[in-house]
Nucleic acid binder design. Structure first.
Length: 377
DNA sequence: ATAGGGTTAG
């Protein structure tokens, strides 16, 4: 039962485990990897839970099991405790590819990319990597944006003749795009033996990132013509391309098609893309109206996107209303909003209001931050 | 029986 829920609803797995303890049923060797996997999937909620699971495995002697050790590494990485993950890893008498992958991918996805790459260098001299381990390495390079390293990793993969999976190709496309080489991203994509929805989406995002909006739309059309159905991630990519490239009508057409052609209910991010699309095109009133009428409650990202558009096109009245909404939602305030608002006043010569906003900032202790003094002068 | 994996609005 714990296994049945470990992926779809990890919290339910944890609940079941508690109940099992309550009924004095003792867990066995196979219970802990499942349990720790559930903990990894919701690390913030189940952190103390996992810590007691860890000590329980020690008490019961299950800590010597490599499955238990591997899931502990994964858990500690995903909850941001790299030191503890490394501690478990160092104490292992024997490591298999899954141990390395749990460590490298775990570190790579929690902001410890340089550490993940160091682990990879150590691993290279101990055991040959497989294509799953390389996914963690690639995502580290993606986060760091180091093109030279990316080129090296790519040739390393070719030299070792690793299995060319769709996941590997997709990761390489994103990596080269993030490192600034759209040409290499495109080449990897073209050479992929097979492509699925994620692969196409990565290529669309790559073009969007590089401002190649019409290429992104072209790839999107090619994808749908090949018979694949876009999901909401694909739409985020193609709509982002439209807003960055000012493809106003194309963006509107695609937004309507989400529900009209594919029967998918647009999500908040799609509405966000549309606000950005209209905002960048200077249609600030229309964007404001759109936000007020959208069926999902707008979040701070949406309001700030709109505020940015107000600043760029000097819509003071809308800006004031929007700032009001933001203040209601975010009590702590955000230095960027004050800077934006002060710019909208400055932009149309209302210096008194601009000074007032800047005074408020100083009063709130915001102007002391170094990033702030660079802006809005 | 149990463990590692690619894409996500500003």
């Amino acid at each position: 039962m714990i296994r049945a829920h470990s992926i779809s609803s990890p919290l339910l797995s944890l609940l079941l485990f508690s109940r099992m303890r309550f009924h004095s049923v003792s867990p066995d060797l196979y219970t802990f990897p499942l349990l720790l996997k559930a903990c990894s999937l919701s690390p913030s909620f189940s952190s103390s839970f996992a810590l007691s699971a860890h000590s329980l495995t020690i008490k019961l002697g299950f800590i010597h099991d490599i499955y238990v050790q591997n899931t502990l590494i994964r858990f500690y990485c995903s909850s941001g405790r790299a030191r503890r993950a490394l501690q478990v890893f160092d104490e292992m008498p024997h490591r298999d590819p899954i141990s390395w992958s749990a460590l490298i991918s775990g570190l790579a996805s929690t902001g410890w990319e340089p550490l993940a790459l160091s682990a990879f260098r150590v691993m290279q001299i101990q055991s040959p990597p497989d294509e799953i381990i390389m996914l963690g390495v690639i995502s580290s390079v993606t986060a760091l944006g180091d093109l030279d390293l990316g080129i090296w990793i790519h040739s390393y993969i070719l030299k070792r003749a690793l299995r060319s999976t769709v996941a590997l190709g997709t990761a390489l496309v994103s990596m080269f795009a993030a490192c600034g080489s759209i040409a290499r991203a495109g080449r990897v994509f073209d050479e992929m033996p097979e492509r699925n929805l994620r692969a196409w989406t990565a290529m669309i995002d790559a073009f969007a990132e590089h401002g190649r909006s019409s290429d992104a739309v072209r790839v999107f059309d090619e994808m749908t013509r090949s018979g694949l159905t876009p999901d909401h991630v694909t739409f985020i990519g193609v709509l982002t391309a439209c807003s960055r490239g000012g493809l106003l009508n194309e963006g509107r057409r695609l937004f309507r098609s989400i529900k009209g052609m594919y029967g998918i209910e647009p999500i908040l991010e799609h509405y966000g893309c549309m606000v950005d699309l209209m905002g960048r095109a200077g249609l600030v009133n229309e964007a404001h109206d759109f936000v007020l009428r959208m069926p999902i409650r707008p979040n701070l990202v949406i309001w700030r996107t709109l505020l940015g558009a107000c600043v760029n096109f000097g819509y003071v009245e809308v800006a004031e209303q929007v700032k009001e909404r933001i203040a209601e939602m975010d009590e702590h305030g955000h230095d960027g909003d004050y800077v934006l608002l002060s710019n909208v006043y400055g932009g149309i010569g209302r210096w008194a209001e601009k000074d007032y906003v800047r005074c408020t900032m100083r009063h709130a202790g915001i102007a002391k931050t170094p990033g702030c003094s660079l802006l809005g002068n």
